[in-house]
Amino acid sequence: MERDKNFILGVYDDEDVLLEAITKVRTSGVKIHEVYSPFPVHGIDDVLGYKRSRLPIAAFLFGMLGTILALIMQFYMMKIDWPMIIGGKDYAAFPAFIPVTFELTVLLAAFGMVGVFMISSNLKPWGQPRIFDIRITDDKHVLAVDLATNASIGEKNIADLLKDSGATEVNKKSFE
């Protein structure tokens, strides 16, 4: 069987049942493809074993870039390219450069991080997501198990496991 094509889905109504179900499914050796929810469920990344997002690092690096570019720009324009005495201040009036430096730091940090988020989560206006169950943007949580990766366990056993863990429905879904 090919991977990433045929899935068995456990549909859950309640987020706390879902969190316990994930632990149960994982401890019995079934690999979870992904869990889909209508809202962010707290603690779900811990039970799924997801590492903390590295997006804050991206934000920090882009912020640093903003600070550096802003300072280079202002020193170049005010001190090197066209020095002028303004209000009796030094050409490189460092304290006066802080507001613009701060704003550009925030601007680049925010846009850089959001850009990385968009790319890493594959968010784009022409994006066509694979919808496992249309209700996951409404009121249901869906736990998807790839049948090919868990071929050794067997479809029936997985379905029983999902039922036991509190799934209100167990469905099959195949993608072309």
Binding site: Y36, P40, V41, Y50, L55, A109, M113, K124, P129
Partner: peptide
């Protein structure tokens, strides 16, 4: 934008919201 509601995406979404809040507060 092709939102899929995956737990991984939500986890990143929450990080982004928190950091944006941290940036927007001094802003």
């Amino acid at each position: 934008f092709g939102w899929d509601g995956a737990a991984k995406t939500w986890s990143r979404y929450e990080s982004v919201a928190l950091i944006l809040a941290g940036l927007a507060t001094p802003l």
